[in-house]
Amino acid sequence: MRVELTVNGAIHGVDVEPRTTLLDALRDNLGLTGAHAGCEHGVCGACTVLCDGAAVRSCLMFAVQADGIAITTIEGVTPGPGELSILQDAFCETHGMQCGYCTPAMILAAHALLTNNPAPSRGDIVDAISGNICRCTGYAQIVDAIALAAERIRGVNRPPEAGA
């Protein structure tokens, strides 16, 4: 079946079987391997992408359901070659990862959180990433990274005369 996917702002026509998940289409048809398969049954969150800005599990959507939806992957939130977003940089600053397998999904979940809630409490952060299992880190440095990014993003937005 032919489907037009809008991914990171560009439209891609792909031929997929109806049973092809969005995750597999992104990885296999579009070569966007930043979304990872952890369980393929909706629990681990490693496959998280943004659909119209909301974090969703791409293993629980079929690609044929995704036309017309603005899909954002980790590749789409990276500013450019060799450049990191504030959130990505914050993950590096606190070492909010180990093996890196859950990391793109964590960053996208955090991205969705900070878009709606620029000043999250630690509880908000914990809640927002609770659907993303990380086996390596015990979450502490991930929560730190998101809190740090929130602070920095707020700093960037503050008018210079505010003294920040």
Binding site: L32, T33, G34, A35, H36, T73, I74, E75, T78, L84, Q88, D89, F91, C92, H95, M97, C99, G100, Y101, T103, P104, I107
Partner: peptide, 11 residues
């Protein structure tokens, strides 16, 4: 970490 935060780990 730099490669992982942009989804460029090579798994």
């Amino acid at each position: 970490d730099r490669r992982f935060v942009v989804g460029k780990g090579r798994f």
